[in-house]
Every structure is written in structure tokens, then in C-alpha cells.
């Protein structure tokens, strides 16, 4: 009900002249200012729709590609319990992808189209998932830092002005806390373990710290879409605000582990009650985003392979469904 008929409805509403669009836009902004939720069938500016399709689909792709670095360790998790936990976590991420694709579809784009864009390498996804997971400690660091940063980004999205996105985020946020806690617990075990285990945890923190800070996106001054997204209440806090909050939360957690945050400039600012941290290397971020990260090619190849190798299953499901439908029809006749 949320996808079908959207196009015709949109055209209908747009039948009016340009001055009416201005009036509609004003009314739309007034509803947003009043904290009313926008729902799929209501009128919305084309740019709002496009911005949301871009953001929600990138988010969905990130959940799906995000299954890969962790999936790498499912067969090698150190115990049966850890294996079960990791499977459950990776399955959650697949679910998050599914919720988000559904939310994007309410805006009149098909899932087929979105997945096609990902497989063709035309779509963006979070650059963090282009880093490798060489040790078990990377699984701990991902849960703790990457899911931790994701939570920081996602909690304000639960109040996003677009209803289906906000509702998907509520569901997702409920599941994320387990992800972060299981990761931190892995780090805790390792850092309380043998010296080589602790060193393994330290190395993983070294690898994931900076990429995690980059997850919040470019600095406010550089961010192209920030201001408009704030006005539309798709976004509630700036990238820099969220990044600062993440650092403030995470540094004491690292201290508790007895691990060193790999930033010589890191210091506590007593007056501001914030941690001050060093400059982020945005050229690395740009490189990874452009496809030159350590695992970009591998990630897309893995997705394509999964899609191709699953084709016979999809074909069989469709064949089965049409056979059943034909049987039903002849029974009814």
C-alpha cells in the first residue's frame, strides 16, 4: 500500500501551476516545523524525496555490505557461543538492510533498481566497510566502535520527519545495543587476557579508531547537504556534534580497557568538558569513498557473487509460486 500508486498520486498533486508548488512547499515546511511526520502518500517536494531515497538507500546498502567484514569470522569464531552471537548479529544487519529498502521503496523506487545500483558499483555505502578484518579482535572493535558510531548517528534518525524511515530506525536502534555490547565484551576479554591478546586488541583499536570518526561524515563546513537536511528535519545534529559526542563517550571506555587511543593530540578540555582530538585525514576518506580503499573491489565482488549464485533459488521460488497459483485457478474453475 505504501509503494503502489505513488507516481500517479504525485502527478495528480502536481497538476497545479508553479505558484501552487510554492504554496505546497510552504505548507510542507510548516508541517515539518510543527514536528508532524510526512507519510508516503502526502505531497512532498521532489528534492525531499530524492534526498531521502539517496540517504535511505545508502544506509540500506551499508547494512548489507556491512555483513561482509564480520561474516569473514563466522567460521573461525573462537567458540560455539561466539559463533552463534556473530551469526545473530550479522543476521540483524541483513534485517536492517531489509527494513531500510522497504522504507526507500515507499518513496516510489523499486528494490530491484536499488540493488542493481549497488551491484553495478553506482551506489555509495559507508566507507568503513571497505577495511579488512585480519584478526578476531577486529570483530570486537567493529561492534564497539562501528556499531557505536552507527548508534550515535541513528538515534536522532528515530525522530526523522519521514515516517517510514523514522519507524525503521526505531526498530534498528532497539537491536543495535546488543551489537555494541557484544563487541565491547570481546575487547574486554582480550584486554584482560594474555599480553599478545591485549596487543591484538590494541592493534584493532588502532585500525578502527580513525575510520570510525570518519563515519560521521565531513566537517559541517564541507558537508553539502547538511543545512537543507536540518531544515527538513531529516537530520537533527551536525556531523561534528555527533562526532564529538562519540569521542566523549568512547575515550573513557578505551581507558577502562587499558588501551591507548591512537591519537597523540587527544586531551581532556576541562573548561569545555569535552575531549579535544587531532585532525582527521580526509584524503583517506575521499580515497576510500572513491573506491580505492583496501577492500572496495572485494566487497562488491562478494555481493555480485552472492546475487548470481542465488539466482537459481529465486527462479525456483517464482516457478513454485506460479505453479501453485495455476493449480489454485484450475481448482476454482
Amino acid at each position: 500500500m505504501y509503494t503502489q500508486g505513488l507516481d500517479s498520486l504525485g502527478k495528480d498533486c502536481l497538476r497545479d501551476e508553479a505558484q501552487d508548488i510554492g504554496r505546497l512547499e510552504q505548507r510542507f515546511q510548516a508541517r515539518i516545523d510543527a514536528e508532524e511526520k510526512i507519510e508516503p502518500k502526502g505531497w512532498m517536494p521532489e528534492a525531499y524525496r530524492r534526498t531521502l531515497i539517496r540517504q535511505i538507500s545508502q544506509h540500506a546498502h551499508s547494512e548489507i555490505v556491512g555483513m561482509l567484514p564480520e561474516g569473514n569470522w563466522i567460521t573461525r569464531a573462537p567458540s560455539l557461543l561466539r559463533k552463534s552471537i556473530l551469526i545473530a548479529k550479522v543476521q540483524d544487519e541483513g534485517g536492517h538492510g531489509a527494513y531500510l529498502y522497504s522504507a526507500a521503496e515507499t518513496l516510489g523506487v523499486s528494490r530491484d533498481e536499488l540493488i542493481g545500483q549497488l551491484l553495478e558499483g553506482k551506489a555509495k555505502y559507508s566507507s568503513i566497510f571497505n577495511y579488512p578484518t585480519p584478526t578476531w579482535a577486529d570483530i570486537g572493535a567493529i561492534g564497539w566502535l562501528v556499531d557505536g558510531a552507527a548508534i550515535m548517528n541513528q538515534i536522532p534518525l528515530c525522530r526523522c520527519s519521514y515516517g517510514p524511515y523514522a519507524r525503521a530506525m526505531v526498530r534498528i536502534c532497539k537491536e543495535e545495543s546488543f551489537h555494541q555490547r557484544q563487541g565491547y565484551e570481546i575487547m574486554l576479554r582480550l584486554s584482560r587476557g594474555t599480553p599478545p591478546q591485549k596487543e591484538m586488541a590494541q592493534q584493532a583499536l588502532n585500525r578502527w579508531w580513525w575510520p570510525s570518526l570518519m563515519m560521521f561524515g565531513p566537517s559541517d563546513a564541507e558537508s553539502k547537504h547538511s543545512a537543507q537536511s536540518m531544515r527538513w528535519k531529516i537530520k537533527r545534529f551536525s556531523n561534528d556534534e555527533l562526532r564529538q559526542k562519540f569521542v566523549d563517550f568512547t575515550v573513557p571506555q578505551a581507558e577502562f580497557l587499558g588501551l591507548a587511543v591512537p591519537d597523540p593530540a587527544l586531551s581532556w578540555d576541562e573548561a569545555a568538558q569535552h575531549y579535544r582530538f587531532g585532525a582527521i585525514d580526509w584524503s583517506e576518506f575521499e580515497q576510500v569513498l572513491k573506491g580505492h580503499g583496501p577492500c572496495n573491489r572485494e566487497r562488491l565482488e562478494a555481493r555480485r557473487r552472492a546475487h548470481d549464485e542465488g539466482r537459481w533459488v529465486r527462479d525456483a521460488a517464482v516457478a513454485h509460486a506460479s505453479k501453485q497459483a495455476a493449480k489454485e485457478k484450475s481448482r476454482a474453475a
Binding site: T3, D112, R311, A317, V318, S322
Partner: peptide
């Protein structure tokens, strides 16, 4: 619904 690469029905 013969082409399995197309979106399946929505529920």
C-alpha cells in the same frame, strides 16, 4: 511474475 529478477509482490 515470470521474470525472477523483477521485484516480487509486496506484502
Amino acid at each position: 511474475m515470470t521474470d525472477s529478477s523483477r521485484d516480487w509482490p509486496l506484502y
